[in-house]
Design a protein around this nucleic acid. Sequence first.
DNA 1: CAGTGGTCTAGACCACCAG
DNA 2: TGGTGGTCTAGACCACTGA
Lengths: 230, 230
Amino acid sequence: MSGHTYRSIRGAILRRVESGEWPPGSLIPGEAELADEYGCSRTTVNRALQALADSGIVERRRRAGTRVAETPIRRARLEIPMVRREVEALGKTYAHRLLKRETPAAPADVLTRMGLKGNARLLHLETLHLISGEPYMFEDRWVNIAAVPAILDAPLEEISANEWLIGEVPFSRGDIGFSAAAAGNPEAEFLKVELGAPLFIVERRTWLGETSITSLRMHYPPGYRLTSAL
Amino acid sequence: MSGHTYRSIRGAILRRVESGEWPPGSLIPGEAELADEYGCSRTTVNRALQALADSGIVERRRRAGTRVAETPIRRARLEIPMVRREVEALGKTYAHRLLKRETPAAPADVLTRMGLKGNARLLHLETLHLISGEPYMFEDRWVNIAAVPAILDAPLEEISANEWLIGEVPFSRGDIGFSAAAAGNPEAEFLKVELGAPLFIVERRTWLGETSITSLRMHYPPGYRLTSAL
DNA sequence: CAGTGGTCTAGACCACCAG
DNA sequence: TGGTGGTCTAGACCACTGA
């Protein structure tokens, strides 16, 4: 090593992009040439360029080389913490209240969302999450009983379904969606906001392999804000 | 190479984590040991483990080794496209209408948000973005004239401020925030929604080095949804 | 089909930090 | 202070794909 880390080289290349030396859409020198120029190995240049490609600054293709991205795509990396952590990070005390726990016939839209058939048994949970005793977030959750039968006996008054599921199925895949919606019932009542108030909605589905585990909608009252560096 | 790519090894390790062989919080074998076990070089194992650490599956510390994450942090990676692309990706035609363009005395909250002093000159823009002729998003933007003086002569009726700025300052840093808010004026009128309708709000600020460039608020009507794999 | 990035290897040294 | 991950190197072969 001659004092060149892949970070320093990534920085050097980024500066040349930002300075306009290599404008958007232009081809930048190949790895071998850059390695020669910076006096480091091609491996190190490769790593730097991969990092830049990962952040959307450049686009790379075999044979075609590396070009500066034409339209810089913004990639925001959001960290989605557990509600408990979110609250405790604010220095407040967290609590939750299980408002509903039932196994009704599942609505068609929930079944569709979870990719299940009509005979699937689902557990429906409504939970209010509290910050220092005040409403923080209202959660409407459905759980696929076939995927985690033990949930029927879980002490969900003491441990939230989210945390119980993390203990049971620690690593699952899923997707997430963000939107806005007017407060209806029962969420308006539980969150102590007026009917029609604008709520921030986070929807999440998780899967273990091909099996749907849970699907939920989290309702945050006005004032909630999700942020990220860009 | 003996048929082992860093991806296959990442997958193999992930499966052992998911299977519960290494429960959350537990220490997994060191790089050297895993390399030996899988019959590949330590470099390859290192790359696999770095990828897993990057997705929040494991946590690594020198001397302490690699542990399975205690509480899996969810990292969502959001791609924030230009509005034009977002619309065109739906197969619709994009257009925009510049509704306001003025250089008033800047409100205090805008100055604070942009980290500027009271004497800073700002350009205020209100733009309606259209999808196939219908309102798609209302944008309220402030631009720091000192950072990009040429914007005063930019043909913003033809090219949206966003795209003009990308051309002028292709690579800038910034942050982004998501929230919900009730439609007020003028956005309710322009978006053709009722006063008080729940809007999805995206706020963005961008900087070039230490200089604030622009700060904006994008208002999406009910129905808009931002999604991501988890 | 030739040139580019993608990746693996074996070895080396370093930075960090828990014991 | 020793063991762990972090990183660099030089060389090699491979996979893809555009000219």
